[in-house]
Design a protein around this nucleic acid. Structure first.
Length: 338
DNA sequence: TCTCGAATGGGTGTTGCTCT
DNA sequence: AGAGCAACACCCATTCGAGA
């Protein structure tokens, strides 16, 4: 209200106005030879008060009109368009309403863009959680996304661990072979070479199978169309565990288990010991120990839940890798970049 | 003293009718 | 069809009295 008030300094002071009015009225009365009786004096004062009130009312109306003009400049309208006071009020209300709707729309857009940026930059779930909390816009979709993100990260960690274990295994096997060459006589070497050959064949088969896997996966990713981007949460459902194969003759290294890594190295040592025992003619005892050894080696593999992601050369490998691929690909499906 | 609502009068545009 | 006119509606400014 005060904002639109007419500046008071431009308006003459009330006392001055009243004094001037009195003087003017008195002068007019004297000019018209009208006697200044008490009644006429009261009428004059009453009229003067009325005039003052009217003047104030005019100023008030002027301030109201100034406010309407200010509103008119704020609302969208064509130049020269005539707008009544009622129209100004109605259009102002409509304009404010549309601005509020626009604000809501922009806020939603901002939220979506922020989420998209977070997915692109791969920010940590904790940070995202904190940011969402700050905005107060947390939704179940975000929590599902975070679950998927966690699973994906866990999968990557397992992969890295697998690579590390593989390198350790190769190193240990190399050490065993060098020790073997130094320690054992020529007779043992033949047997050791046989065992080694068997292991190499096994490794070749492993590598071949891995290669096939990769090719299949590559084909799947090429043939399957990328999932349409959606804001629905992607829930990763673990693939059903394949039936455990009982091919215990082939003992290979589990991909993501330290236990399996140790078992394979131990297997190599056992194989050498077995060869020595074979030379010493303890054939029956060796077979007994062989049975025990296999039991020891196989048990941890079968009991370990991570065996599902194993790269063993068993029949269940394809299913395992499928499960792995499924859980690896799904988080990427929801418009997420690798 | 200020604010507010009602009443009033003037200006302007629209509409319906009549007349030419 | 177009001009003229009365009625009407709308908007606005002003006045006035009541009340906080």
């Amino acid at each position: 209200m005060e904002y639109f008030m007419v500046p008071t300094q431009k308006v003459p002071s009330l006392q001055h106005f009243r004094k001037t009015e009195k003087e003017v009225i008195g002068g007019l009365c004297s000019l018209a030879n009208i006697p200044l009786t008490p009644e006429t004096q009261r009428d004059q004062e009453r009229r003067i008060r009325r005039e003052i009130a009217n003047s104030n009312e005019r100023r008030r109306m002027q301030s109201i009109n100034a406010g309407f003009q200010s509103l008119k400049t704020l609302i969208p309208h064509t130049d020269g368009e005539k707008l009544s006071k009622a129209a100004i009020l109605q259009q102002t209300a409509e304009y404010i309403f549309s601005l509020e709707q626009e604000k809501t729309r922009l806020l939603q857009q901002n939220t979506q863009l922020k989420r998209f940026i977070q997915e692109l930059s791969g920010s940590s779930p904790k940070r995202r959680r904190a940011e969402d909390k700050d905005e107060g816009i947390g939704s179940p979709d975000i929590w599902e996304d975070e679950k998927a993100e966690d699973l994906r990260r866990e999968m990557i960690e397992l992969r890295q661990q697998l690579d590390k274990e593989r390198s350790v295994r190769m190193m240990l096997e190399e050490q065993v072979r060098s020790l073997e060459a130094h320690m054992y006589p020529e007779k043992l070497k033949v047997i050791a070479q046989q065992v080694q050959l068997q292991q190499q064949q096994e490794q070749v088969r492993l590598l071949h199978q891995e290669k096939l896997e990769r090719e299949q996966q590559h084909l799947r990713t090429q043939l399957l169309p990328p999932p349409a981007p959606t804001h629905h949460p992607t829930v990763i459902v673990p693939a059903p565990a394949p039936p455990h194969s009982h091919h215990i003759n082939v003992v290979t290294m589990g991909p993501s288990s330290v236990i399996n890594s140790v078992s394979t190295s131990r297997q190599n040592l056992d194989t050498i010991v077995q060869a020595i025992q074979h030379i010493e003619g303890t054939q029956e005892k060796q077979e007994l120990e062989e049975e025990q050894r296999r039991a020891v080696i196989v048990k941890p593999v079968r009991s370990c839940p991570e065996a599902h992601t194993s790269d063993t050369a068993s029949d269940s490998e394809a299913s395992d890798s499928d499960a792995m691929d499924q859980s690896r690909e799904e988080p990427l499906g929801d418009g997420e970049l690798p």
